[in-house]
Design a protein around this nucleic acid. Structure first.
Lengths: 154, 154
DNA sequence: AAATATAGTTGACTTATTCAACCAATTTGC
DNA sequence: GCAAATTGGTTGAATAAGTCAACTATATTT
């Protein structure tokens, strides 16, 4: 059994037996770090990952994007409005299927993305340099295996 | 390099290089599972973990609880109002320090907590049985090491 | 005893999340 | 080929979450 007490002397009790709890703790902290590190840019939640996915999948549709990051499609609309306003991404009406918007990142968006990735790397490394490269790979693999089940079950 | 493409054919691109991203994915899914599985009880966010921590730390104060789950103390107030209304927890004015509320779980709360833990176990196991016991322990250990750094840095 | 700090509460404000309704374009089933 | 159903995108309303400053009461510090 792993340590059931925190730095402040508060006991975790049975909560400490759940991986989900540990996962959430770490993730919350990483996410707070991210928000702090990028506060000056005023990035709303989901904006960074949307931009990254558009960059990696030029021409992706809003529906696909929504599915991938599990956002309601209405959120995607306003996120895209935001990205277009900033000049970081653009919607182009698809010629094959005229319902769809094909999404593209702009050069400015690409530059911005580059900078944000650099910031994320820095904050992540602050936590991850605790782990050896082998452990890091293992961690990723375990998380992927867990995620694969989640998705399959839907 | 691990797989950079998802089930739907969407590429993760550089996003796939970040452990934080994988962590978030899995955590989001687990958290959705939890919400679905407990939807009938109408548990607001933070209520379950608060109750569990009160159970593990009888007499804990609201401030300590707030710190432990990184909630604003005003949120803790309304969470406690909720828990008292349900009859799952009670505030008692501390006699040593009359500013503090010492928090206690009630027998009903304990029963409810038991049930919720059972539900959580079920949903978590659906994902975790993918991992061997050894891998599970390793995962917990890695997460704890990551979390330890987060906390130390504050 | 005055100044400072901590515990809890309240209310205002901002941001996220969820949901239903709607239009336009496409696909499916006769 | 046409009606019905589905999908992609948009809008707006409703609810929930998260953040913050102000305030009371009690403790602690000096």
């Amino acid at each position: 059994m792993s340590k059931a007490e925190t730095a402040t002397g508060v006991k975790l009790g049975r909560l400490g037996d759940y991986v989900g709890f540990r996962l959430r703790r770490v993730q919350n902290q990483l996410s707070r770090d991210f928000v702090n590190a990028t506060a000056n840019r005023g990035l709303r939640s989901g904006l960074f990952s949307s931009l990254a996915l558009i960059s990696a999948n030029p021409g992706i549709s809003q529906a696909e994007l929504s599915r991938e990051i599990a956002m309601d499609k209405s959120v995607t609309v306003s996120l895209l409005d935001d990205l277009e306003r900033r000049g970081w991404a653009a919607r182009k009406r698809s010629t094959q299927d005229r319902r769809r918007h094909a999404l593209y990142i702009t050069p400015e968006g690409e530059r911005e993305l580059e900078e944000i990735f650099a910031v994320v790397s820095t904050t992540e490394n602050a936590v991850l340099h605790q782990l050896s490269p082998a452990e890091l790979m293992l961690l990723s693999e375990l998380l992927d295996r867990m995620y694969a089940v989640c998705v399959r079950e839907e």
